[in-house]
Design a protein around this nucleic acid. Sequence first.
DNA 1: AGAAAATGATTCAACTATTGAACTATTTCA
DNA 2: TGAAATAGTTCAATAGTTGAATCATTTTCT
Lengths: 149, 149
Amino acid sequence: MNPNKIDSLIRRYEDIFVFANRKIHALFAEQLSDDITAEQFFTLRLIKEHGPCTSSLLSEWNCVNRSAITAMVDRLVAKGYVTRQPDSQDRRVILLQATEEAEQVLQAGQEKLRQFVRTYLDELEEGELESFISVYERIWNIIQEKEGK
Amino acid sequence: MNPNKIDSLIRRYEDIFVFANRKIHALFAEQLSDDITAEQFFTLRLIKEHGPCTSSLLSEWNCVNRSAITAMVDRLVAKGYVTRQPDSQDRRVILLQATEEAEQVLQAGQEKLRQFVRTYLDELEEGELESFISVYERIWNIIQEKEGK
DNA sequence: AGAAAATGATTCAACTATTGAACTATTTCA
DNA sequence: TGAAATAGTTCAATAGTTGAATCATTTTCT
């Protein structure tokens, strides 16, 4: 690709990436109920969807240190949204599972998120949105491939 | 747009938004020199580019409370990258400016960022990238418009 | 089998980033 | 002129994070 051209595209991408993402994150966090943060919501959602799962996996998915997950899960346990259960197969492993109480919070948050994302994605053409997401997913795949090496 | 279709697109978008962004942020932070965090880098870059500027503006751009900016700027001042100067027009205002020393950190960080973003954007077709960024910018504009109201 | 290495999770100290309320100093405007 | 608005800071509290050390268990190698 033309180097000058790509440099200017990169610059546009950088700005949008940093500032649009911050804004989107802030707006979503604002809509969530007060007893859960956006980070907690997304971690809880991972536990719900992949649960029972280990904290090591969560640390990979979230791209944070394992000790950050311990602390995060402590907060979720304190709020009654997650339980820890020792794995019977491998006694080093602690399995995390979302509780019944988590259900409501997740449903409510999910609905808020859906509505919120809709307010801006609705303004796009279907094809436009579809190709946008496809490129996003390709970028994601490229990054993961490069990681693998 | 077809409601079922958009729901599945939204779900794909949510996942990619949360997890790709985390990964990209983590990878970039890893590449930055140890004496500055990614948040500090982007704030410093704003000050450099729009400087001299006020902390109120930074708080808007970064979508955080004004007191968060005070703390952030304290850290940047402690590292010698930013100076505070009272505005002579309006004595409530403190103008922030990047120092000479900030120059190197910014240049080095910028270069790292450019190289890093290049490693994944380079794999895309120019047109593909261009339309991706355009849609991203449109989303950004839609959000800002809705904010305005 | 036994020793060494690896793995899963936690603890702890230190730090960054953030909120929100209270406060000071200034400016605006009715 | 006096009330309201604005710019910035301080402070206490909390979330989120890193990285090193530690413990318990499992895996691997010889």
